[in-house]
């Protein structure tokens, strides 16, 4: 899409105005408003990337593998934003816990991670809100089972006020599909890796579905899991359930899902 420079400037001014209206005039971190994920995904957002200072939600298929994928997804985003407050339940739905050496390889260094374990969802939400009140944090992540519309709205308001990004992960198979006041909702699941020349596991791949976004965009992609800097790699776009091969010989198109 080609734009003349004047049009682009007008658009940027309009977007700034809309942001100010949306955030009641005062955002904590006005300097950066979006985090680029992948060019193919960023094109869908008016901000030019994942909008910051609001609530995002990600769910998976309820399996432990899905939980690991969600952890790495939130870790890769949080590690690029700064200090991450990670709120988890003391007893996890799958009997597993965060493993820092693995998060480092998804782009979240140990120095940027502060963990809080709560006994209940209520205490976890309170800890998240507390974290969202501190603008020096980059991101607040919560692994939560039950999230009501009211609670998600509170998180969204707290995130808007301080400019800290909030991510709720719903790894539990019991996590209810309720209405959530999030700027974007994702579904992320594992996907078989691309065939490799030598018989060993290649780069892990995920199926990344953008179910809902404030801008109205939706999408469905196959991506490569984040590297140690937290950057995703693009693999294919899924249309009507079929992955569209990108024009490179080593990737092969296959049925997704």
């Amino acid at each position: 899409m080609a734009k003349t420079p004047a049009k682009a400037a007008d658009l940027a001014a309009l977007r700034q105005r809309i942001r100010q209206l949306e955030r009641c005039g005062g955002a904590g971190k006005a300097a950066t408003t979006a985090l680029p994920l992948l060019p193919q995904i960023d094109a869908l957002w008016p901000e030019g990337g994942l909008p910051l200072g609001c609530l995002h939600e990600a769910r998976s298929d309820g399996s432990l593998a899905g939980h690991a994928v969600l952890s790495a997804f939130a870790g890769s985003i949080g590690g690029r934003l700064g200090l991450v407050l990670w709120c988890a339940r003391r007893s996890d739905a799958h009997g597993s816990h965060l493993y820092a050496p693995g998060l480092v390889q998804a782009g979240l260094p140990a120095a940027r991670l502060l963990v809080v374990t709560a006994a209940s969802d209520a205490a976890l939400l309170a800890a998240m809100e507390e974290g969202l009140a501190h603008p020096f944090l980059g991101c607040v992540v919560g692994e939560i089972e039950r999230l009501s519309l009211t609670a998600s709205r509170r998180l969204q308001l707290a995130a808007e006020k301080s400019g800290v990004t909030a991510i709720t992960l719903r790894p539990s198979p019991r996590a209810a599909e309720g209405g959530v006041a999030a700027a974007s909702r994702w579904r992320i699941t594992t996907h078989p890796s691309a065939p490799h020349a030598i018989p060993e596991a290649g780069k892990a791949r995920w199926r990344l579905e953008l179910l809902q976004a404030r801008s109205g965009a939706v999408g469905d992609w196959i991506v490569e899991a984040p590297d140690a800097q937290g950057h995703l790699g693009f693999s294919a776009r899924v249309d009507n359930g079929f992955a569209q091969a990108r024009p490179e010989p080593r990737v092969f198109a296959r049925r997704a899902g």
């Binding site: 991670l113 809080v116 974290g131 020096f136």
Partner: peptide
């Protein structure tokens, strides 16, 4: 600033439940 955040979290969930992961 950071200590203040840790204190507030600790007063909600207990001192032992706020930690970092060290190698």
């Amino acid at each position: 600033d950071f200590g203040a955040l840790v204190d507030r979290l600790a007063s909600r969930v207990g001192v032992r439940n706020v930690f970092r992961l060290a190698g």
